[in-house]
Nucleic acid binder design. Sequence first.
DNA 1: GAATAGATAAACACTC
DNA 2: AGAGTGTTTATCTATT
Length: 420
Amino acid sequence: MQVHRFKRTVSLVLVNFSVANSIFSLSADLFELMGPITGMSPDKKTEIPGMQDERTGLRGGCGVGTLPEAECASSPLATSVDRAGGTEDEELTNLNWLHENLLQNFTLGGPEAQPSGSPLFDIEGDYGSSQGPSSSSSSSSHGRGRERDSLKSKPPFSFSLLIYMAIEQSPSKSLPVKEIYGWILEHFPYFSNAPTGWKNSVRHNLSLNKCFRKVDRSLGKSNGKGSLWCVDPEYRPNLIQALKKQHFPAASAFCTPPASPPSASSPPRHLILQGCSFKGNSDSPLDLSRPDSVLVSSDPKQDHNYSSAALQRCSSRSSSSSFSSMDEGGCDRRQSCRAGSEGFHSDEDSDLWDERGPHQTSRRPPAIKWPISKKARREVKPELDEELKEAAGSLLHLAGIRSSMEGSKHTVKSTKLNRK
DNA sequence: GAATAGATAAACACTC
DNA sequence: AGAGTGTTTATCTATT
Ligand SMILES: [Mg+2]
């Protein structure tokens, strides 16, 4: 009994920790098991303009059809799946039980699983526990009520992160807005019923947030309206951090560096992101393990990037000065403030995850031209074995920090309750 | 209460 | 012309 509890607890912590440290990817088998996370009825989708063809774009190996074929070739989905499913299971059976444990212990909604029905939603509390009062479904209330809630309650991600996830999940790492809409709708059915303003918000974010860039039209998709959007590698670490913080606030316990060495940060390859499922595509998973660590420009003028508040708070508001996200062109204080709020801010925060260095050189779609970052973008391809070892290590490590995690969770919850 | 992040709405220009 | 896209500004809420 004790052991069981321990395992369960560790699994919870590990998931948090893993996300905090790295990958948001889901093995294909799990993905298939869960099916479309959305639970959005087909007819509902047809109500949404432009949704009919979205799925194919995202799911079929080479999503963005208009992208150069090379990108398709560079999307070895199958291999990644093998990697995630096979090797890992063999070499890290302890993670395997974790995985299974998660699936069993936390109402996996099955083929109709909603975002909120996914295990991780319960880990951090309910779907949107960090967001609105609407998310009152307790982890004990499963079934329809739960699904209903998932449709009603907002995903606990900011638009920036939703966009980021969408883009990162695409094989080419770039998507037109329409497909971003599609991805969001597909993974977060909440928006299918939400007022249409969210699309405006998405565009607003793409435009204002420095983390997202348009792919040069001549290089990317050129037919049709609009252009492709991608994540600026420069700001990617910040988005990753924001994702970690936003979705796993408890993970901030690990944000204070040396306590948990990077070794403890190599995650298992499967992860379920709250309500979303991610295919184990080695080329497109939300792989937080490649923090592209790099840097963000130190130039305040270029610092219009996202100032992931979450990050910042975690790292104790150190460099608020660097935050002067003044966009080129003078803007008044208010505006600069606004602009800043939409973009991540470079802090010295990514250092925690940086050890392995960026991958993006190899990952960036050939069609996308970036101003080459000043910082060297060495390609660091950590060996899988290495990762697995580290993951195992982290598991052990986590066993020791479990109590603190639970403690912090309690306090967070109680604080929220108090406020309400 | 100030600062900040994020959401939302809206106006507008541009492209197809 | 109309729809979709992208940019910008303004306002509001929540959090720290
Ligand atoms: Mg942008």
